[in-house]
């Protein structure tokens, strides 16, 4: 499934430049070490972390997009760094739990 389709289905807010990456699954974690070891290239990464080092981790694994939940404010410096490294940042007002359910319902596993 393409990222744009998921954004439309789940009414996600796009915070950065958008690359319509192919999405191959979802990984939910707030620990960068966990993401580094277990997330797969092409996954959507769901987290509440907003520090700009999420860009370093997402770029390393080649994550399709990072979705930040709970409507948390994202620092501008994180958005700017993400744009430099072509990391797509998205935002959702849903909780991580609810968003995970919606992603599953959308057929992304």
């Amino acid at each position: 499934m393409k990222l744009k389709e998921i954004i439309d289905k789940l009414s996600l807010k796009v915070l950065t430049n958008l690359e319509d990456n192919e999405v191959s699954g979802v990984y939910i974690s707030d620990m960068l070490s966990d993401v580094m070891s277990k997330a797969q290239s092409g996954n959507i990464w769901v987290t509440i972390q907003t520090h700009k080092n999420i860009v370093a981790a997402a770029n390393l694994i080649d994550i399709a997009a990072v979705i930040i939940t709970h409507g948390v404010d994202i620092p501008q410096e994180t958005i700017e760094l993400a744009n430099r490294y072509n990391v797509v940042l998205l935002s959702s007002d849903d909780s991580t739990f609810v968003l995970g359910g919606k992603l599953y319902q959308a057929g992304i596993v």
Binding site: E22, S24, S33, A57
Partner: peptide, 30 residues
């Protein structure tokens, strides 16, 4: 691991950094 990617990464040793103490790169940490 970057199978779907058209990009790649390169890893270099820290000795390449001219001044590690003033470097403001983005360290991956929890």
């Amino acid at each position: 691991r970057r199978k779907s990617s058209k990009s790649s990464i390169k890893i270099v040793p820290y000795e390449m950094i001219n001044d590690p103490d003033s470097c403001t790169g983005e360290f991956i940490m929890d």
